[in-house]
Simulated assay, not measured.
Amino acid sequence: MTLEIITDPALKGTTHGFFTRAGGASSGVFKGLNCGYGSSDQHDIVSINRERVAKALNVQPDRLVGVHQIHSADAISVTGPLGTTIKADGLATATPGVALSVLTADCQPVLFADQKAGVIGAAHAGWKGALDGVLEATIKQMETLGAARANIAAVIGPSISQRNYEVGPEFLDQFLQADPTYSRFFAGGSGDRMHFDLPAFGLYRLRQIGVRSATWTRHCTYADPDRFFSYRRSVHKKEADYGRLIAAIRL
C-alpha cells in the first residue's frame, strides 16, 4: 500500500505532509505507518516506517529531525540531526534538506513556513502546549532565523475535533483561569462534561500573534480509525497502546 500524504496549498513551495496511517509496516493496534519510537511497537518496524516517510520527503532518514515531546511550550532551532534526548515541542530551521517532524495521536501537528525568508517550523500542540504557548515559541524561533510572522503560513493537521473531545470541569477551569474569554472554545455536553475545540483554539492563538494565514485541514483523528491513530479512541477501546502519526516539512 502506498503512503497517503495530506498537503495544504498554504505551504506550497515546501515539501511537506501530514501522513496518515496508510502504507506502513506495523501490525496489530499499530497497523500502518506508526512512526513513534515511544510506542511499544517493534523498534525496527518503526524505523522502516520512518524511512518511508524520509524517502517521501526526499531526505536521508537521519535528516528527518524530531525531538522528545513533553507537552511543553519549549521550541528550538536546528541545523541538522538531533540526539534523541532533546526535549521540546517546537522546531524551526532555515537549513535546506532538514525535515522537521512532530508526532501526534489527537494533539495538533502544526507546520509553518515563511517562504520569503526560507524558514520553516513544526510544533506538537496538545491542549497544554497550546495553552502554555508552544505555537508562539515556535514562531519566535522562526523569527530568530529571519522569518516575519506576517509572512508565516501555519497549517494545523489532523487533530481531535470538538465533537469527540469531551472534558471535565477541572479542564475547563484551567482555561478560564488563563483567560475567561476562552469559554468560547467549549460547548455543553452531558452533565458536567464539556466539549473542547482544540483546533479552533490553535487557530485563535496563531491569529492573535499576527499569523495571517492559519488553517486547519479539518480531519478528525478520533472519528476516522482507518486513516488516523487516536490516543483517546485507544483508551475508549481499552487497547494496550496506540500508534503515532507523523507530520513533517522541509525547504
Rank of each mutant, 00 (worst) to 15 (best):
A73C: 03
A153I: 14
G24D: 03
T15F: 10
G146C: 12
V65C: 07
T79R: 10
H219Y: 12
H236C: 03
A130M: 06
L203D: 06
D173C: 00
Q115H: 12
K87F: 00
K128G: 10
I209Y: 02
A88K: 06
R207K: 15
G188T: 11
T20I: 08
P169R: 08
D224G: 00
G188F: 05
Q69A: 02
I76M: 11
I156F: 05
V46N: 02
L172P: 00
L103Q: 01
A248G: 00
D197W: 03
L3V: 11
L203F: 07
A247F: 01
A75W: 03
T84K: 10
S161L: 07
A130D: 09
A178S: 05
Y231P: 00
I249M: 01
R184N: 10
Y204I: 09
S230M: 04
V211H: 12
R163H: 14
A99E: 05
L111C: 06
A94I: 02
F186V: 12
R63E: 13
A147D: 09
K55L: 07
S213C: 09
K12H: 15
E170I: 12
T104I: 08
E136T: 13
L206N: 08
D74S: 10
F175K: 02
S213P: 02
C220Q: 01
R184L: 14
I48A: 05
W216G: 03
A240L: 07
